[in-house]
């Protein structure tokens, strides 16, 4: 058994229309609270906690999440994930997610804040049935640094691998490396500091959804840049560059709202965090 700073194993199932935990196990600096049901749809919401308060040198976190048939789950965090300086080894987090037929997962963690001299690597591996639906968003933000430098972290690397019916269909690999790249130059962050990524994989995706999203979003704003494109399987990917977390969150919640409306004729729940 590998030595994890924090580990979480969560398996949920649909029990008469309500999604409940079949197995919950956590140890070290990873914890989940009891599920919250925002409405009577049976859709469960779990909040992930990092009691340690932040990721430090060489920390390693592992999450295994499994949604059995028709389970519906939102997984979010209670607050931002903070990565502090890692003088020797990068902090690492991996998630293995399994989505069985008809299940629906929204994985919407709060932003990642990478502070001065932080090195962080994250890998999400999603194995899903073609009738399952996956919705994911992440935001990478630079933390405050004493000398006011805009990008004081060293590296942030995020890899998302999605397999549908055992075939690799998405390989989304971003590595920001301010230690050796000119982040303000052409082709990197285009003058912005925050990067948001959203990934949606679900058989309901079609070109009319894309048109609806384009009409819901102002593509000519100076506050952000947004790109979106459909995947080689039904699904889409969205990237946003902006200067604040709020701008990206607002765009993502609008996109989330359009998708929920279109696919489930419902409104997403407001994820209250105190």
């Amino acid at each position: 058994m590998e030595d994890w700073t924090g580990a979480l194993n969560l398996e949920v199932e649909d029990r008469k229309g309500k999604t409940v935990a079949k197995k919950v196990y956590f140890q070290g600096a990873f914890k989940v609270m009891r599920p919250i049901y925002h409405d009577d749809s049976g859709h469960a919401c779990y909040y992930l906690l990092n009691p340690g308060g932040g990721y430090l040198d060489g920390d390693r976190y592992q999450m295994k999440l499994s949604l059995l048939e028709k389970a519906k789950l939102t997984l979010t965090t209670q607050s931002a994930t903070k990565v502090y300086k890692t003088p020797n080894n990068f902090a690492y987090q991996e998630a293995e997610i399994s989505l069985q037929p008809g299940s629906y997962l929204e994985y919407l963690p709060d932003p990642l804040i990478a502070y001065q001299n932080a090195k962080y690597k994250q890998k999400n591996i999603i194995r899903m049935d073609k009738t399952a639906t996956f919705l994911y968003a992440d935001i990478v933000t630079p933390g405050w640094s004493p000398d006011g430098e805009r990008f004081s972290y060293q590296t942030v690397q995020i890899l998302n691998e999605v397999y549908v019916d055992n075939e690799l269909v998405v390989y989304d690999h971003i590595k920001l490396n301010p230690a050796s790249q000119n982040m303000n130059g052409l082709g990197f962050m285009e003058g912005f500091s925050h990067l948001g990524s959203m990934l949606v994989v679900g058989k309901q995706t079609n070109s009319s959804l894309l048109d609806q999203l384009y009409s819901a979003i102002d593509m000519n704003s100076d506050e952000y840049k947004l790109g979106l494109s459909i995947l080689s399987v039904p699904g889409l990917t969205i990237r946003v560059l902006a200067n604040t977390t709020q701008v990206i969150e607002k765009l993502f919640s609008e996109i989330h709202r359009v998708i929920s409306q279109e696919w489930f004729n419902s409104e997403p729940s407001f994820l209250r965090k105190y």
Binding site: L176, F188, M189
Partner: peptide, 18 residues
């Protein structure tokens, strides 16, 4: 290291659609 891309380049390729 396979498939690493910088956000700006990728964004410009997505924005080209429109």
């Amino acid at each position: 290291d396979f498939g690493i891309v910088s956000p700006g380049l990728e964004m410009s390729q997505m924005m080209h659609e429109r």
